[in-house]
Nucleic acid binder design. Structure first.
Lengths: 230, 230
DNA sequence: AGGGGGTGTTAAGAAGTCGTTAGGAAATGG
DNA sequence: CCATTTCCTAACGACTTCTTAACACCCCCT
């Protein structure tokens, strides 16, 4: 349902500034990586494919602009340059080297985060649709749509929730207790009887022979499972 | 072989600043358009599809942030905001409203041009017509115009917002919560009842058989969706 | 062969949600 | 300032979904 938090790479050698950036990003729920040198930064970028890069110029081992140029050989990841130098020529050089933004120290946390959001917005909506396909079934989790043989089948909220819970644990047995908890919520009152009723309904809507289920299988005394061949 | 020079739209009411920007852009070989008001700016943007927009806040007729929001309803064209106000909160507000960069006056020509180059770099491959077509419906997002069988149908602001929200998520189920948030704004007080009333109105204005909607479908207990045949 | 636990099936009432209408409040535009 | 449009709210019938109960079934065990 919810995508993981965007990953951001910090390339910064100064411990103090690094701490500041780390706290800012962490407080906003981003995942982050750190590199203290240009080499390390490039390696981490290649290895983890962050969704944005914060780059402080003035690294010990290589020129920041070279880093951007090297990165741009294979990646379009947005780069926000951070620098103490506010000269116009510095900004122009960095932006023309391939950086996407240029922030001059000192700057505020809120502006930094706003510019990070812009960068992430640019990173593009690379949202591949989570679609579960099994034999004649096609379940589009994003659209909340279930197709059987290309024909749409309507599921009620509980039916859909039960079905997607089984899909999430496809192939594995899910216990009665776990199903009741995930579908009906931890609250009390949920009875194993519900499962039998709704499994029946699901089978009638989805299985070819509801009385001889091929995929929505019972694991007697334990729970149910969605059988995925082999 | 060689594409025409990128087209840039200036939205600026101050004659002096306009002259400065014009000279800067012209000297770099860009084509440009000028607008002195927000209304004119929106119209020109819709008509000529510039590849980037330079927007001065503090226009006479409308708030600059509203202009960005209106533009973002149908276009992803990069917007560089220019402002005399350097407050961090101003920058954050503009960037979060959809702007891509924020320049505080005074600024140098070379930095401006460098940031324009960044913006043009971002400007992706040819945006398609900002028109949504489905069966007998034709919605021009730029003109805010809805046609049914070629006949214009008038929608109130809320109706239009609700409709375009469904269009933006065409095919997907949009939950009550999400619709209320996107159409009525995150603020409190929005009730699911609103949705029922406005969906009824939309169906009467847009559907052939309002009581048997073909496209504006209800997903009981979950939300609504704009049905686009699989 | 006869229980008995767990399971499948069906149906009907209860609970909740939705569609529709209309009228008054609020905002808009001249 | 008034006319018009738009928005909010309440009420109620119609519909969908959920819960619950009753009963049939099947396999295993003694």
């Amino acid at each position: 349902m919810n995508a993981p938090a965007p990953l951001i790479l910090l390339v910064e050698d100064e411990p103090q500034m690094r701490r500041f950036l780390r706290v800012s990003l962490e407080g906003s729920g981003y995942r982050y990586l750190e590199a203290a040198t240009g080499q390390e930064g490039l390696a981490l970028a290649a290895q983890h494919r962050p969704e944005a890069i914060l780059l402080d110029l003035g690294l010990p081992d290589m020129d920041g602009l070279d880093l951007v140029a090297r990165l741009r050989e294979w990646s379009q990841t947005p780069v926000i340059v951070i620098s103490a130098r506010g000269q116009e020529s510095d900004k122009v050089a960095a932006l023309d080297a391939g950086a996407d933004d240029y922030l001059t120290k000192p700057f505020g946390t809120r502006e930094l985060l706003a510019r990070v959001r812009v960068a992430l917005r640019h990173a593009g909506p690379e949202a591949e649709e989570p679609v579960f396909v099994l034999d004649r079934w096609r379940v589009d989790l994003a659209k909340r749509q279930v197709l059987v043989d290309g024909r749409e089948v309507h599921l009620t909220p509980l039916e859909y929730s039960l079905f997607t819970t089984l899909i999430r644990h496809a192939g594995k047995v899910v216990t009665h207790r776990q199903l009741l908890k995930e579908v009906w919520g931890g609250a009390a009152g949920a009875q194993p009887l519900y499962l039998r009723v709704y499994m029946t309904q699901l089978r009638h809507k989805l299985e070819e022979e509801p009385s001889r289920p091929k995929y929505l299988q019972t694991e007697p005394g334990v729970g149910y499972r969605l059988f995925t061949e082999s």
